[in-house]
């Protein structure tokens, strides 16, 4: 393969999607699919705390009434200080995340410095918008983007609509079929200046309640040891919370639920 060298007039610059189309790597358009045939990913949340943000997402993907995956990873690291969580059609969503990760790193290397956090949020917006034909058929992707803004020294979070609309939220945000329940739990439990552990516990609680009330959201699978993905992003960057800590948090939630029903 010859090296991709372009004349300055048609140089794709720092846009990896444009580079892909210039290099002839294009995505086929989808058509005639029923949403219930396609795996869908569900509840994801993000919450701001004292030192940054906590993101969380359950592990279930469903095709109609069928559980198609039990250990899907919907919350992933975008780069050193940010993460993205997805709800919606799993295939386009996973592809979107991959493209987003490559785009951020590609920009950083070509340009010599990383995009600002807001620039990254904006970039994701255009990826969501480019999935518009899919969204028109019920194969929309609705992500959450969150990260630690190293210039402003604070955690920030954004949610999106299927058309690529981008909304910065102050404290917490939820997306997917269980978002109503998860969002309510976070709203009730939110206090300003939460510390890390309290924020992780609140995120776990919101996912637990969403799984209780929404059939497409999976709860902690204690039998197989599959727990929701929870990640903390602070000044030191992305840190995925270990299964041992999550097990302890969910064991606490289970025993308090048991007490209140006995």
């Amino acid at each position: 393969m010859a090296l991709p060298v372009f004349e300055s007039a048609d140089d794709p610059g720092t846009d990896f999607s444009r580079l892909l189309s210039r290099a002839g790597v294009t995505q086929p358009a989808v058509g005639g699919l029923r949403p219930e045939d396609i795996p869908h990913a569900t509840t994801c949340v993000a919450l701001r705390f004292d030192g940054g943000v906590v993101m969380g997402g359950d592990r279930r993907a469903t095709s109609g009434h069928l559980i198609s995956h039990r250990s899907m990873e919907k919350v992933v690291q975008a780069d050193s200080h940010s993460g993205v969580a997805i709800a919606g059609a799993a295939g386009p969503a996973v592809e979107m995340i991959k493209l987003f990760q490559v785009q951020l790193e590609y920009y950083e290397k070509v340009q010599g410095n990383a995009l600002s956090l807001e620039g990254k949020a904006n970039q994701l917006s255009s990826l969501v918008r480019s999935n518009l034909p899919g969204a028109m058929q019920g194969l929309g992707v609705v992500p959450i983007f969150a990260g630690f803004d190293t210039r402003r020294e604070t955690g920030r979070l954004w949610d999106y609509d299927v058309l690529g609309g981008r909304y910065e939220e102050r404290d917490h945000v939820a997306t997917g079929s269980g978002s109503l329940h998860a969002g309510t739990v976070m709203k009730m439990g939110y206090r300003s200046r939460l510390d890390r552990d309290a924020a992780v516990a609140l995120v776990c609680r919101s996912l637990w309640e969403a799984a209780e009330a929404d059939s497409a959201t999976g709860g902690p699978d204690m039998v197989r040891g599959i727990y929701p993905i929870v990640a903390v992003i602070d000044r030191d960057g992305w840190d995925r919370v270990g299964d041992a800590e999550l097990e302890a948090v969910f064991t606490g939630i289970v025993s308090s639920a048991r007490e209140s029903s006995s």
Partner: peptide, 17 residues
């Protein structure tokens, strides 16, 4: 610098595909 960018592009395209 032109060669550097071409190399990044080549590597990212291969890694993506």
């Amino acid at each position: 610098d032109q060669l550097r960018v071409a190399g990044i592009r080549q590597a990212e395209l291969t890694g993506y595909q």
